[in-house]
Computed example of a mutant assay.
Amino acid sequence: MTLKERIQEDVKTAMRARDARRLSALRLISAAIKQREVDERVTLDDAAVISVIDRMIKQRRDSIAQFAAAGRRDLVEAESFEAELLAAYLPARLTTEEISAIIVQAIAEVAAAGPGDMGKVMAVLRSKLAGRADMAAVSQLVKARLGGG
Rank of each mutant, 00 (worst) to 15 (best):
Q140A: 15
A14Q: 10
L125E: 10
I7M: 15
V142T: 04
V104M: 07
R93T: 08
I29N: 02
D117P: 07
M1I: 06
V138Q: 04
K120G: 12
E77H: 13
K128D: 02
K4C: 03
A47Y: 06
A31I: 09
P115A: 08
I57H: 00
D19K: 11
L26V: 03
D46M: 11
A101L: 13
R22Y: 03
A78F: 01
K58D: 11
V38P: 08
K128N: 07
A32G: 12
L85Q: 03
R36A: 12
A130E: 13
R60G: 04
D134C: 06
P91H: 04
L23R: 04
D117V: 11
D74E: 15
R41M: 10
K120W: 07
L146R: 03
V38W: 08
L129P: 00
I103T: 04
G149V: 14
G114M: 03
A133V: 02
R18H: 11
G71F: 02
G149P: 08
G116I: 02
A17Y: 08
Q8C: 11
D117F: 05
Q59S: 10
I53C: 04
A133P: 01
K128Q: 15
G131P: 05
R126N: 01
S30A: 14
E109C: 13
V104D: 15
L3F: 11
T43V: 13
I29C: 02
R27N: 15
G116C: 06
L90D: 07
L125R: 05
R132T: 09
V142G: 03
G131D: 09
S30R: 09
R73Y: 10
D46R: 08
A112I: 05
V38R: 11
V142S: 04
M135D: 03
L90P: 07
D19T: 07
I33A: 02
P115V: 10
E79G: 05
R16Q: 11
A14N: 07
V52H: 02
D117G: 14
R6E: 04
L90G: 00
G147V: 00
L125F: 07
D19I: 12
S139N: 09
A14K: 07
D54G: 14
